[in-house]
Design a protein around this nucleic acid. Structure first.
Lengths: 376, 376
DNA sequence: AATCACGGTTTGAACGTTCCAATCGAGGGT
DNA sequence: ACCCTCGATTGGAACGTTCAAACCGTGATT
């Protein structure tokens, strides 16, 4: 027996059933205030009854807005799961979705960005893993493409300092780490860092140095090298074998801290350690690394928020919500942000860029509080 | 001075410039064989010249296919970066993209899946983190929605055994681990596992047991408990303090193996260990955990391949390729797959589901080859 | 010479939505 | 009684693409 057509309902279907025109149905969804309460109620009833949901594609074609956000996924990124979940949740709550794409590893994948734009696939981008010579921000800004970066441009060149971004205040993190160690009684607090010129590395170095000065500790020892467990171990050994060795080390990353931990254990020394990033390995028993945690969830949320503000949709996109579909958890801290430098008011290069510097939080573990316990 | 309109070119623009009709331009892109070589060359020249790229949205509206694949991101997933990169690369090479969404934590987010379909946002889904009582496969299959799961349904109920999937042969992995330990001279090889009923846990247990039998080792000791470092430690302690304790342990996960490692070190015992998953922590110096590595890149690639085959596009979608845009790396092994049970030929429930069981690879490290070295 | 087949091309319509201008009825002011 | 405004609604058009069918020469077949 041939079942009834069971067409997927369209705006025309609803209009016919409710005895109104297409446009009125559209208005009920997109501009409810212009339609009479009575008709609105009638149309909404029909919508619910037939389970109508507007076709995103047709809407996109007409409005020239896909409600999709492009995000380029590169190779390894241990925090990606948390970051994507946060962004996806924030976007979904306002009717947007993330679209993933890949770009060739070495070169900046500008062609991929251009392709998505030329084909009308996305409305804007979230950038991450921004590097020093990154051409993407300037390129996007010059074309008026909305975007928000996770990470500062790390350049004083005003031509590069364009667009909105959200970043973690690395200096504040290492400062907090230094203070933490000071409060535990340490007075010789060294630093294990990256080579100069790496943006975030310099930032974290500065936080440590400035906090040492603030605490009246004077000049403290530092050593620098590439990221890597073995390098961290070597650098820590250098520091620990010098005269007046530090009793505590602030490290520019968890990986470096892990190397320092191994060096200290091998040398039979009790050294208080703090890492940076709070990667999953920091929490492992037997490692128990005190670390500076990046508020990844909050970053993801804010990055999306800034982008959607640029895309200039009202705070809540008109879309018949699916009941209890997008709930999402937000295990982050409260409003602990700190706005960066005031938005410079240039002539009129689009909307004023927004910048957010978020405060990381120190997660204390045994490596700083009971360093001697670490040695089996 | 008012610059020329600089409109984004459409198919009409190209048609006018080339002196042909819209449809001919469309044919040049989608059915090149029906158009005369001369006109084709002319049209292609114009396309290149004006930099025309077809509007995906308009194409989607007409063809009712968005070339987008839905993927639900949940909470923690340390392998997500590798998996998404692989999927995204494979999809991009055939003109598809991944769309992320989230579902409420506890419940199975079926409403979210329904919403994406009702709004015509995606053509199909990739499922992952499938659980035992998962309703998604049956629900999707009943509506004829194309999907591929990463992970077997783990149920003998034929009503649930629907659709295509790709999974890792866990039994083969633990069997390889067991053989590895046997080859190193061990004759008492225990197992640290999860409670029965967890699908993949049972699978891995079976691989170990069967390999023990095959090697003529007879009955070997096993202990089971929830995932967690502390549980792994407790279970290992139980096994090691029993009479005739094992000299080697196959563990159902890296986390369990890590617990076992700590227990062995605490007890001053040299026990050869093998974990499962090759999570990033396994490679850390000081841990050096031999582990069974899941071919995540290959899984991602194959999952997408099977899905696109269902979506029934030709092997290469007609899309004017952007030069060297999607390159992508594929650091995985060669064709080391093994097809699962032959596709059951039922009446005609859509295309015959495809199933792929991929072979994991053992990554030897110190924890199995030189276990005594692990004790500082 | 009329018919047919066929490669190549064009024409109109459609996908489902929203924009825009027009329409209509009801009051309100002069 | 007239014009005007205003709220509510409507009908056509448009977004850019592809589908389905029609068209049109040309050469082969009858």
């Amino acid at each position: 027996m041939p079942r009834p057509p069971q067409q997927v309902p369209s705006v025309s279907t609803v209009a016919r059933a409710a005895g109104v025109s297409r446009q009125t149905v559209s208005n009920v969804l997109n501009a409810p205030h212009v339609v009479h309460p009575d008709t609105r109620a009638r149309v909404e009833a029909v919508i619910r009854e037939v389970g109508y949901r507007p076709n995103r594609v047709a809407r996109s074609l007409r409005t020239r807005s896909t409600h999709l956000i492009g995000y380029c996924v590169g190779g390894d990124n241990p925090l990606l799961d948390r970051f994507l979940h946060a962004m996806s949740t924030a976007a979904g709550q306002r009717g947007y979705h993330l679209v993933l794409f890949t770009a060739p590893p070495g070169a900046d994948g500008l062609p991929a960005y251009e392709d998505l734009l030329a084909r009308n696939t996305v409305d804007g981008f979230v950038l991450s893993e921004t590097t020093v010579g990154d051409r993407r921000p300037a390129w996007l800004a010059s074309r008026g493409v909305p975007f928000v970066a996770f990470g500062r441009p790390w350049s004083s060149d005003p031509a590069v300092d364009v667009g909105s971004w959200v970043d973690v205040d690395g200096a504040a993190g290492t400062a907090a780490a230094t203070r933490h160690l000071y409060d535990l009684g340490h007075r010789r607090i060294g630093f294990v860092g990256w080579p100069a010129g790496s943006g975030s590395g310099d930032d974290r170095l500065r936080g440590w140095r400035e906090e040492c000065a603030r605490l009246g500790l004077g000049e403290q020892p530092a050593a620098h090298g590439e990221n890597g467990i073995e390098h961290g171990a070597a650098l820590a050994t250098t520091l620990l074998t010098a005269p007046e060795p530090p009793t505590a080390l602030v490290c520019v990353s968890d990986v470096m801290a892990l190397g320092a931990q191994q060096a200290a254990r091998a040398a039979g020394r009790a050294v208080a350690l703090v890492g940076f990033d709070d990667s999953p390995l920091a929490a492992l028993p037997g490692i128990d690394l005190t670390s500076v945690r990046q508020p990844v969830e909050r970053i993801g949320r804010d990055v999306v928020r800034l982008l959607l503000d640029q895309l200039g949709d009202g705070p809540v996109t008109a879309h018949t919500a699916v009941p209890d579909a997008q709930a999402g958890t937000a295990p982050d801290a409260g409003p602990d942000d700190r706005t960066g430098p005031p938005p410079d008011t240039r002539p009129d290069t689009g909307p004023a860029p927004q910048r957010l510097l978020l405060e990381p939080t120190l997660v204390p573990r045994l490596s700083s509080t009971h360093p001697t316990k670490e040695q089996p």
